[in-house]
């Protein structure tokens, strides 16, 4: 499903060029529950961003569902993300003026799905992530765990092929983090959605069905469990 081939990404920090990824190659199959782990600065987020088509390659190629990412222009990438990818962020990134329902349903609005179907799908996913009855609450009236559940619902409501989660539990306590992981695992099993998430937390790594370890921009191990 996803082929990462000899991917290189460099960043400029003043005069210095930081080599964030030094020729990373990886094959990810349908429905995988994969964790990209490593210490800070190892290139986890960079790799996720490149797979998520929100960053540009300096070398190599990423192919998703047979489509090479490097050949996509800005508009195509936007459309591709809109139709195929879900994102979960460490800091949830919810829109504070919108209710839980609106934070989830807007993803369907931009896909021009009819209002009735938006309502059905949003209510269903909110129920599945355990937020039934809280759909009218704004994020500031919900706990961190509940906010991350909205983010998961937002990522899954459009039935994407791939969900990318950057350190999804880093802002949560261990108990809530575990609940979120269990939820993600359940969604992975139920919808057969590919989950790729970055972490440096060993508890999170334990949940992964496949663990890819990065160090200094290179894969040092790739373990299936």
């Amino acid at each position: 499903m996803i082929q990462v081939q000899n991917v290189i990404r460099n960043y400029k920090a003043g005069e210095t060029v930081v080599k964030a990824l030094k020729g990373v190659s990886l094959d990810i199959g349908d429905g995988e529950f994969l964790s990209i782990a490593g210490p800070s600065g190892s290139g986890k987020t960079t790799l996720l961003n490149l797979i998520g088509c929100i960053d540009a390659l300096d070398g190599g190629e990423i192919t998703i569902e047979g489509q090479p990412v490097s050949g996509m222009d800005k508009k195509t990438k936007t459309e591709f993300r809109r139709n195929n990818l879900g994102f979960i962020f460490q800091t949830y990134n919810l829109i504070p003026v919108l209710s839980a329902y609106e934070n989830v349903s807007f993803v369907l609005s931009i896909l021009n799905i009819p209002e009735k179907e938006i309502e059905e799908r949003t209510m269903r996913i909110l129920k599945e992530v355990g937020l039934e009855g809280m759909e009218h609450r704004r994020p500031d009236r919900l706990s961190g765990g509940q906010q991350q559940r909205i983010a998961i619902a937002r990522a899954l409501v459009k039935n994407p092929k791939i969900v990318l989660a950057d350190e999804p539990t880093a802002n949560l306590d261990s108990k809530t983090g575990e609940e979120i992981l269990k939820l993600m695992k359940e969604m992975n099993r139920k919808y057969h959605t590919t989950f790729i998430f970055s972490t440096h937390d060993s508890m999170v790594m334990d949940y992964a069905a496949r663990l890819v370890l990065l160090h200094d921009g290179q894969i040092v191990s790739d373990e299936r469990r």
């Binding site: 998520g52 929100i54 459309e79 993300r81 809109r82 994102f87 990134n93 829109i95 993803v107 931009i110």
Partner: peptide, 12 residues
Amino acid sequence: RELGMMRALGMN
């Protein structure tokens, strides 16, 4: 950041 999120999720 919110703007980045919306763009990441495919809002043009």
